[in-house]
Structure formats: C-alpha cells, structure tokens
C-alpha cells in the first residue's frame, strides 16, 4: 500500500477512537454537565470514562478490525468479492453459539464460555459452508450456500431466544441480529479482546499464502504453499476473531464486505496487501457507525446494523452491478 492512504487510515482510526471516547448521546462532548461532574465529582467522571466509554471505543475498534480483516481473508481465500463473514453466515453462526451459551446459563460456568460459544458457532458455520459448497466451489454455489447457512443460523438464533428462560430474551433478537455496543463493560474487553487479537494476528501471517493462492491452487503448490494448512489457519483465525467479536456485539453486517473494497484501490489487488488496511478500514467504519448511532438522542439507541446496512447495502448493489459488467 502506498504510504499516504495508509497513514490516512491510521489517523482516521485514531481520530474516531478519540471522538468515540468524548461524545455521549446527542453527540454532546464536553458540555456543562461533564465539567460540573469533572470538578465536583471526579470519581464519577472517571467511572463514566473508564467503565463505560473506554470499553465501547476499544470494542468498536477491535470488532471493526476483526470484521474487516475477516472479510479480506474470506474474499482472498474464496477468491470471491462478495465473501463477507455476515453474508456467508459466519457471524450468524457465531451469534447462535453465543446466544445458546449466554441465555441458557452456560456463561455462568466460566467467563470464557461466551466467546468460546461464539467461535465454536463461527467455526461450525464455516465448516458447514465448505461441506455444502465443496472446497473448490464456484462463486455462485458458495454464495448460495452461505445464504443458506446465514438463514439457518438466523432462524436458530431466533428460536433459541424464543425458548430462553428470560422473559426479555425474545425482545433481544434485534440486538443479536443488528449488533450493539451500548453499555458494554471492561469485562467484555477481557473476554473478547485477547481472542480477537490472537485471531487477527494469525490471519495477518497468511498474506503470502493468500497471494500465492490467488494465482491458482496448482501455482500455489509449486510455490511451496500448503493449501490445506492455509485454509485451516484462515478458518481458525476467522472463527477466533469474528466469533469473539460477535459474541460481545451481535452480528454487524457489511463491514467485512465493504472494508476490503475500500482499500483495494490503494493497496493493489493482491489479497495479502489488503489484510492490515482492511482491518483498519473496518475499525474506521465501525467506530464511525457507533458514533452515528449516538446522533439520535430520543428513544432507544439505534442498532449498529441499521447504519452499516444503510451504507453497506447500496455498496453491495454497486458491487453486484460492477461484477455483472465484468469489471471485477
């Protein structure tokens, strides 16, 4: 990637992270209430800052990064510009795993149970996808299989929430299918951040293998790439990072789809070069979406998926029209 655009990404992630820390509902930053609190009750101000805003901003950054890099990996691995963890059902599978663990009391057994449920769900959905579509499937087969997996996991998530013992569970279907960062705490950071970091780190090592794979499997083998190992590592990495991300935020669509396309223009077409920029672009998009949901100060807060779909769905249409024109 050229240096300029890369620096712009870094700066935008940093700037949005700061904005996310500073603003509250209605996008008021340091208003009089804040100053009063800071002067007269610094303890309370510290609590608001460290326990409420910090987790939200850190999770926004990390989850966006995971989804962005997950999208870049899936698009490279499947050689398909539409492969997004949301569209092909990976996020849906993760949400199903997390929902089952969370609502049926398994999360009480161990704090790690929740993200492990998420990554198990993501892994199962990925394996299912490849079993249905076959490893060397055509673009169309793979997308159709992905839609089937996404529909199935979405339906099972709703079913699980309807059957859950909590009377609130059925009302929370929308939180799990549209995603939210509201009122997350430091506990969620300790739960999900290490797994997201391990998963993303694993995925960042796959750049060279993905580049080789983009030349075709035979060429990749002659270049010394172990294809089965690459696929295994890619699936594990995506399951770890996307699974852990979804288990604390719910399914946030379109970020994994859009982020790689945004950076590809500057990073070039080789899949390996898009990985880190895609992660940063994903973090930018999610932090921005999480700031936009705080715009509306009346009524319950918007869900993140509302914003990402408003931006992402037209983008998807644009992408499809370009694909049909043979532009990709």
């Amino acid at each position: 990637m050229r240096r300029g655009p890369f620096h712009i990404l870094i700066v935008s992630v940093g700037a949005l992270f700061l904005v996310s820390l500073l603003v509250t509902r209605g996008l008021t930053a340091f208003d009089s209430a804040w100053w009063t609190m800071l002067v007269f009750e610094p303890g309370l101000a510290e609590t608001v800052f460290l326990e409420i805003r910090m987790p939200r901003a850190v999770l926004g950054l990390a989850v966006g990064f995971s989804l962005g890099i997950g999208g870049a990996i899936m698009q490279g691995l499947l050689r398909n510009p539409l492969a997004d963890p949301g569209i092909i059902g990976t996020s849906g599978g993760a949400a199903l795993g997390a929902v089952v663990v969370f609502y049926f009391g398994f999360a009480g057994a161990s704090p790690l149970a929740l993200p492990i449920g998420g990554l198990a769900g993501a892994a199962v959905s990925l394996v299912l996808l490849f079993v249905i579509a076959g490893w060397a499937a055509s673009t169309l087969t793979l997308i159709l299989a992905g839609i089937a997996v996404a529909a199935l996991s979405g339906a099972l998530t709703s079913l699980a929430l309807n059957l859950a013992p909590s009377p609130f569970a059925a009302f929370e279907i929308v939180s799990w299918t549209m995603g939210s960062l509201t009122d997350r705490s430091l506990d969620h950071i300790w739960l999900a951040l290490p797994l997201m970091a391990i998963g993303s780190g694993l995925l960042l090592t796959l750049g060279r293998s993905l580049d080789a794979l983009s030349l075709g499997e035979d060429t990749a083998v002659t270049l010394g790439v172990d294809i089965r190992r690459t696929r295994f590592l890619a699936v594990s990495g995506v399951a770890l990072s996307v699974g852990a991300a979804v288990s604390v935020t719910g399914v946030i669509g379109f970020i994994g789809l859009v982020a790689p396309h945004l950076v590809r223009r500057y990073s070039g077409q080789s899949p390996g070069a898009t990985l880190l920029p895609s992660g940063l672009a994903g973090a930018t998009l999610l932090l921005a979406a999480d700031i936009v949901v705080r715009l509306v100060s009346i009524g319950p807060e918007l869900k993140l998926g509302v914003i990402t779909a408003l931006v992402g769905a037209p983008f998807l249409l644009h992408l499809i029209s370009r694909t049909r024109a043979g532009g990709l």
Partner: peptide
Amino acid sequence: DRPSLAAMTLDHPALRLNGT
C-alpha cells in the same frame, strides 16, 4: 439465573464501583 442483555445493564460494573 435467567441471563439477558436487559439484566446485564443492571449488572454493569459502573453502577457498583462508584461510592457516591
């Protein structure tokens, strides 16, 4: 014993930590 996101809000550490 019946976890939900709604119940999680009431369990937020920020509601416990602050002495005031």
